[in-house]
Amino acid sequence: MPFAAAMRVLIVDDQLTSRLLIRGGLQDLGISDIEMAADGEQAFKIMMGKPAHLVISDFNMPKMDGIAFLRAIRAYEPTKKSAFILLTGRGDKELIDRAKQYGANNIIAKPFTIPVLKAQIEAIVGKLK
């Protein structure tokens, strides 16, 4: 069984269109166990109940932004080893440095393509297929 088929992914973005586009791209890559959340607060509740192998989270969200969500994930024992990709429309060095400091595995600038997302995922978990 390809790793993609066994991987559980959580997509976190306050924009429904973004969540659906990412989900479609992941499904094209063979990933089918996908859950979605509209903000970091909702996503953290999901992770507390059923942790994902990989989190793909936007930075700029209401209630709990991507960095605060990342910090919560890393501080919670059952989720601290989950892979984390931060998506951002802000490419500034300060944000990137903070994301790395708190344990982001990769940072992707928006807009991005599915091949870029695939490469970033594979850089963390290995070949998907």
Rank of each mutant, 00 (worst) to 15 (best):
V12F: 00
K45P: 03
I107W: 03
V9E: 04
D58C: 11
R8P: 04
A119Q: 07
I22W: 01
L70I: 13
K80W: 01
K80A: 15
P2D: 08
A6D: 07
N105H: 10
R74E: 01
A123Q: 09
A6H: 02
N60G: 11
S18C: 12
P51Y: 01
A43P: 06
A5F: 09
D28C: 10
A123P: 00
Q27H: 09
K110E: 03
A5P: 02
L86W: 00
D58L: 09
I46L: 14
S18L: 12
K93M: 15
I11T: 02
R71D: 05
Q101Y: 07
K63N: 05
I96P: 00
G126P: 12
K81A: 15
D14F: 13
G49Q: 14
K50I: 00
A52I: 04
G24P: 01
D58I: 04
L29N: 05
L10N: 01
M47S: 04
A119M: 11
K50Q: 14
L87W: 03
K81M: 15
V55E: 12
R98G: 12
Q120D: 08
Q42K: 12
I31E: 02
E94K: 13
Q120K: 15
S32H: 13
I121R: 04
I31V: 14
I46R: 12
S18K: 09
T88R: 11
E94F: 08
A75T: 14
E35F: 02
P51G: 11
F112Y: 10
A38T: 10
A104C: 07
D58W: 12
I67K: 05
S18E: 08
